[in-house]
Design a protein around this nucleic acid. Structure first.
Length: 262
DNA sequence: GTGATTGTTAGTAA
DNA sequence: ATTACTAACAATCA
C-alpha cells in the first residue's frame, strides 16, 4: 500500500531495524522470475557492511551509508518490508532478504512482483537519472502552483505525475481532492490562484497526517475519504449529505463525492 | 469467468 | 521537444 506516507513508514522500519548492525548476507529469495532484483555480485558487496542512514524520495526508499553503496527499494503495488527473526518465520512472497548478525532479518515481500530492489552508488544520482520531481512534502508552493496551474491534464493525473511531484498515488490524490472539494477530472489550468493555494495546503496537511499515523488508516480522522473509500458510502464530510461514487480518471479509479467536489 | 487492484513505463498521438 | 493518454506488466482477490 505504498504511497508517500506508507513509504515513510517503511523508511522508519529500516531506521529501526537495519542501522548499525553488521550484515551477514543480502540475498534473493524464491520464485523471483520477472522481478527486478540485484545479482549476487552486487549483493556480495554488503557482507560485513553496516548501514548508517536511510532516505526517502517520493515512493523510493534508500538504505546505505555516506560512502555507499546503497540499496534502493520500490514497493510497486504490493511490496512491503517486514522484520523477522528465524528463517522458518520468513513471510510469504519474500523476494529479497537481508540477514544481520544476531539473526535479525528483513524481508522484502512482493507478491505481484511490480516492485524492485536495486544497488545504487548515490541516491541523488538515482533520483536525477529517473527524472523524479521534488518530494511532495518538500516541493515549494510556487513550483507546485505553477505546474498544476499550467497543466491541461486532469488534476488527479497531474498530482500523481512522479516526474513533477514525487510521492502521491491513487489513494492520496483522491483524499487531497476530496478535502479540497475538487472534481478529480478538472483541469489544473482551470483553477484560480486561491484554489491552487488551497490544494497545496491540503496536500501538505493530508500527507503530514498520513506520516504522523505511520499510514495506519484506522488512525485517520473518520471524516476523511480513505477510511470510507467505497461506492455508495455516505460522504464522510460533515454536513455534506452526498454519497460516494467512482469514475475512471487517467486510467485509474477515482473515488469522490459528486455533491461537494466540483 | 470477469474485472478490479494503493505501481511504473514504453509506445503513440497531438 | 513536450505533454497527454493507453496498454501492458504479474499475481491475487471479490
Amino acid at each position: 500500500m505504498p504511497e508517500l506516507p506508507e513509504n515513510e513508514a517503511q523508511r522508519l522500519t529500516l531506521e529501526r531495524e537495519c542501522l548499525n548492525r553488521t550484515v551477514v548476507k543480502a540475498e534473493r529469495g524464491d520464485n523471483i522470475a520477472h522481478i527486478d532484483l540485484p545479482g549476487g555480485n552486487q549483493l556480495a558487496r554488503f557482507e560485513g557492511h553496516r548501514f548508517t542512514e536511510t532516505r526517502r524520495h517520493g515512493k523510493n526508499i534508500f538504505l546505505g551509508s555516506k560512502s555507499g553503496p546503497w540499496i534502493t527499494v520500490h514497493l510497486g503495488m504490493s511490496g512491503w518490508l517486514t522484520p523477522y527473526d528465524a528463517p522458518e518465520r520468513e513471510p510469504d512472497h519474500t523476494k529479497f532478504r537481508i540477514v544481520f548478525e544476531g539473526d535479525r532479518r528483513l524481508a522484502f515481500r512482493c507478491p505481484r512482483k511490480l516492485g524492485h530492489v536495486r544497488v545504487v552508488e548515490d541516491p541523488d544520482e538515482y533520483i536525477a537519472a529517473h527524472k523524479l520531481g521534488p518530494d511532495a512534502l518538500a516541493i515549494d508552493r510556487e513550483t507546485f502552483t505553477a505546474f498544476i496551474g499550467g497543466s491541461k491534464a486532469a488534476i488527479k493525473s497531474a498530482l500523481t505525475d512522479q516526474n513533477r511531484i514525487a510521492g502521491i498515488g491513487n489513494l492520496w490524490s483522491d483524499e487531497i481532492l476530496f478535502q479540497t472539494g475538487l472534481d478529480p477530472a478538472r483541469k489544473g489550468s482551470d483553477l484560480d490562484s486561491e484554489k491552487l493555494d488551497s490544494l497545496f495546503d491540503t496536500m501538505r496537511l493530508n500527507l503530514s497526517k498520513g506520516v504522523d499515523v505511520e499510514a495506519d488508516y484506522a488512525r485517520l480522522p473518520k471524516d476523511w475519504l480513505i477510511p470510507n473509500r467505497k461506492d455508495k458510502a455516505d460522504c464522510p464530510r460533515k454536513g455534506c449529505g452526498g454519497s460516494l461514487t467512482h469514475r475512471k480518471v487517467g486510467g485509474r479509479t477515482a473515488y469522490f463525492c459528486p455533491v461537494h467536489q466540483s
